[in-house]
């Protein structure tokens, strides 16, 4: 840690206000270039506590930066994690008010819900498969609080990995009935295919992403409780959306998820 509690609290307030007021801000590493990973996660945790104090609930966890290409581009070897909120949840087919976001983008993901606790270190794909209750399709709405999505790794961790919302739907599937690695996704925007991909785009297998999450959390003394909803990471590139856009994502064996931005 390089930052004291006052500064952590100040930065958490700065970033959370940016989210609540829908106002893009400059990245925090401009002012605090020496901040480290622990500082970044401490800011994220403080934002989370601010929300809990206000009566919001944490609805699940998310992984970010899960593609090998993105990790290489950012010069890291592990993904990053964040949390998702109750008020960020939208039902399948939702009409989503785009004015609640700064510059939203959508990514197709595979999500899981756990039935037993996952605690690292030493979590692997097998422990994760055993802990998954069911698999379901999810579309994440990401919305960096930083101007023009310009950030570095520490800034984006502090900003809760650009987490803003999510839409779940389709159909659920027990983990033994699906090969998440080869599950295909097709994202359409206004009726045109804009992105395609398969589960392996998420660090080789979406369940590996969950194992990494458990192991990363254990370094901070946390675990993944039973019943946790986890978004494993983007399979497709993030697609920019505007008012009037209709997004439909078709999943192999998991149905569809759709939404409309107004």
């Amino acid at each position: 840690m390089t930052l004291n509690e006052n500064i952590i609290n100040k930065l958490a307030e700065y970033l959370e206000n940016a989210e609540l007021e829908c106002n893009a801000v400059v990245k925090i590493t401009d002012e605090y270039p020496d901040m480290d990973w622990d500082d970044a996660y401490a800011i994220q945790k403080t934002i989370r506590q601010r929300k809990l104090n206000r009566g919001n609930k944490v609805a699940g966890l998310k992984m970010g930066l899960t593609s090998f290409a993105k990790m290489k581009q950012m010069g890291v070897e592990t993904p990053i994690s964040g949390f998702i909120t109750d008020y960020g949840s939208y039902p399948d087919g939702a009409e989503i008010d785009i004015s609640k976001f700064i510059h939203p983008k959508v990514e197709a993901e595979i999500a899981v819900v756990t039935k037993t606790r996952l605690k690292g270190p030493g979590c692997h794909i097998g422990s994760v498969m055993a802990a998954i209750d069911f698999v379901l399709p999810a579309v994440e709405i990401i919305d960096s609080r930083y101007e023009n999505f310009r950030f570095d790794l520490k800034s984006v961790i502090a900003d809760n990995t650009s987490s803003a919302g999510y839409v779940t739907g389709g159909k659920i599937c027990p983990p033994e009935d699906i090969n998440m690695r080869s599950t295909g996704v097709v994202m359409e925007k206004n009726g045109q295919v804009v992105e395609v991909g398969a589960g392996a785009a998420v660090i080789g297998h979406p369940a590996s992403s969950v194992a990494m999450l458990a192991n990363m959390l254990s370094e901070r003394g946390e675990d993944i409780p039973a019943g946790t909803f986890i978004m494993t990471g983007g399979i497709t590139a993030a697609v920019t959306v505007e008012a009037g856009d209709n997004i439909m994502v078709r999943y192999q064996d998991l149905g569809t998820v759709s939404m409309r931005f107004v």
Partner: peptide, 14 residues
């Protein structure tokens, strides 16, 4: 041994 790309059926003419 490294995933170099992923795709889905719709990539070919829908």
């Amino acid at each position: 041994g490294e995933v170099v790309s992923t795709g889905a059926g719709a990539a070919a003419l829908g």
